[in-house]
């Protein structure tokens, strides 16, 4: 089933073309990596999926419906977004998990939350801790869990491990893979790290200067003949 379809989309910010005439389809159940150098438009592209940013031209369809005709609030409930920089609001960590539930009037079994915490290598008592006393790794894991409270159909992950140490990165990566295997969720992961892309999504899109240079199975990036630009990125 076709989940997202982007047709010739462009994004222009302050007279700069961030995304140029890009077309892309995402099927339900896919796990996609988006890689590319800084400023290639990865995050901007990701933000378009749940309307945190807008296109300047072209069309985006979600489940066959033009994205402009969808209600951003119900769309964002289904299409969850985790930001690069961990940020918790409120005093206690638990307020962050309660927030999405309260604004959508959702009741969630405690077991679901405890199970998630366990998978993220977090103790239950972290919920009662002050946000400011949590480490960066703990904060980012709570941020991830906060988005998962809504059981989104699509999970957009914007370089979520870029500020984490290798141990925390491994925990988060394993958790995401588990979520993907366990739940009926489509994942789009933006990453700078080609090795991470290899461990995560099955399909990888390489973006440079707002254009797709390559869209192929992740394994083929390590075995096939790649374009010069991509090799340069890999060398970094």
């Amino acid at each position: 089933m076709l989940l997202f379809e982007m047709r010739n989309i462009s994004v222009k910010i302050n007279n700069t073309n961030i995304i140029k005439n890009l077309s892309l389809t995402i099927r339900k159940g896919e796990f996609i990596n988006i890689i590319g150098p800084s400023g290639s438009g990865k995050s901007t592209l990701l933000r378009l999926f749940n309307r945190l940013s807008s296109i300047s031209s072209g069309e985006i369809y979600y489940c066959g419906k033009n994205l402009n005709e969808t209600n951003p609030i119900s769309l964002r409930k289904e299409v969850g977004y985790v930001f690069q920089k961990p940020y918790l609001f409120g005093e206690k960590a638990k307020e962050n998990l309660e927030y999405p539930l309260s604004i959508h009037n959702i009741y969630l079994e405690k077991d679901y939350i405890f199970n998630m915490l366990r998978q993220l290598n977090l103790e239950q008592d972290i919920l009662e801790k002050d946000c400011e006393n949590l480490s960066g790794g703990e904060q980012q894991r709570i941020c991830l869990l906060r988005t998962l409270m809504l059981k989104p159909k699509v999970l957009l992950l914007d370089e979520i491990t870029s500020s984490l140490d290798p141990v925390n990165t491994k925990i988060v990566e394993e958790f995401i893979v588990n979520i993907y295997n366990e739940f009926d969720v489509t994942i789009v992961l933006v990453t700078h790290n080609i090795q991470q892309a290899k461990r995560m999504g099955k399909r990888t899109i390489f973006l440079e200067k707002g254009e797709i240079l390559e869209d192929a199975e992740t394994n083929s990036y390590f075995t096939g003949n790649k374009k010069e630009q991509i090799n340069r990125f890999f060398d970094k």
């Binding site: 749940n50 945190l52 951003p72 609030i73 119900s74 964002r76 409930k77 969850g80 977004y81 930001f83 940020y87 609001f89 927030y99 999405p100 604004i103 959508h104 906060r146 988005t147 809504l150």
Partner: peptide, 8 residues
């Protein structure tokens, strides 16, 4: 922005 992304 985070709250909007959560559907607020």
């Amino acid at each position: 922005e985070i709250k909007l992304a959560l559907g607020a």
